[in-house]
Design a protein around this nucleic acid. Structure first.
Lengths: 171, 171
DNA sequence: TGCGTTATGTTATATAATAACATGTTTGTA
DNA sequence: TACAAACATGTTATTATATAACATAACGCA
């Protein structure tokens, strides 16, 4: 529950051992659930792992296909959406509204702001938290007497890497 | 093309003559189009007027029904979406991603930030521009070397009015 | 007037999400 | 252990949102 200053995502910044990154996220997830008394079932765990395995936000139907491919039996939309709803409730994933897609949350224990840089070229979504920005948001709301329950900040453009390399357009 | 400091929307703040508000928006729209050499056809004008007549963001299919109701002949989705795409391109409306809905832009000539306070109780969407917030956004992007093409900031919660009155839940 | 461009009409389909009800699984407890 | 309540998943159908592809109409200028 620490307060974030600035949390650059380890995903985007450099090459890294993503397997380790995933298993760390899965372990955190189990802790979160055990604290909240929620059940981390195998379906939910599979969904979360698939989401973490992708560096790009994953759509519900893509996820559904991946689950089906892994399991011989057919998987219907509600199965996926229920797992996604659960993970959203636990703060373990975010929904990116401008993409109708989902991505793992890099700091599930802190205030659950939904702040992303989204690259149109490579499709990566970089979660960020920045105290100065949050202060401005809170001030703005306060000036309107508005009370915030949830926030979604999506900045769409080109990441540093794609600017440098010319960035292949998204498939 | 002036730089906004803070632009409270006339819609939300107080009671006002909304007819005048709409006709002013329509006139601005014609100016914007004439400057950009785009054609403000009657379909597009009808769509824009319907959007402005609603204080709440309007979905494409709702809009389609309203058009159909007004015109004896049937209206198909592409008709509406093409008009919406045009209005988005001209900066005359915004898309609110968390609602899949559209709303008139209150300051089409300034930098086209997409910043909204969205009330869960009454459904109103209040557009705002605030220099301090924009500076924080730009700083954040700069720190990641990210270049912003478009931004979407949606703060979901309860407006001052609904907090005061208890606010009827959204139909 | 005629030609190229832009806008709209039309039909079909893709994509995203939920409703409603049936079945299975876990958990605590008598 | 056996049972009931709560929770999770399966299944079928449907709703909601958006676009593709091609046909026709209107406009704007040489």
């Amino acid at each position: 529950m620490s307060s974030p200053k600035q949390i650059p995502t380890s995903i985007a910044s450099t090459a890294h051992n993503h397997d380790r990154c995933i298993s760390s996220a899965m372990q955190t997830a189990r802790q979160v659930c055990s604290r909240s008394g929620a059940r981390m079932t195998s379906l939910r765990e599979n969904v979360l792992r698939l989401i973490w395995q992708s560096h790009q936000p994953l759509g519900a139907y893509k996820l559904m296909d991946m689950l089906a491919a892994a399991s011989t039996r057919r998987v219907a939309p509600p199965t996926v959406y229920r797992a996604l709803d659960f993970l959203l409730e636990q703060g373990l994933i975010h929904r990116i509204n401008s993409l109708n897609a989902f991505i793992g949350c890099t700091h599930p224990s802190t205030r659950h702001a939904n702040n992303f840089l989204i690259c149109k070229a490579c499709g990566i979504a970089i979660e960020f938290a920045y105290q100065g920005l949050q202060t401005s948001i809170d001030q703005t709301a306060a000036e309107f007497g508005f009370s915030i329950d949830a926030q979604s900040i999506e900045l769409i453009g080109h990441c540093a890497n794609c600017q440098a390399t010319g960035g292949a357009p998204q498939p």
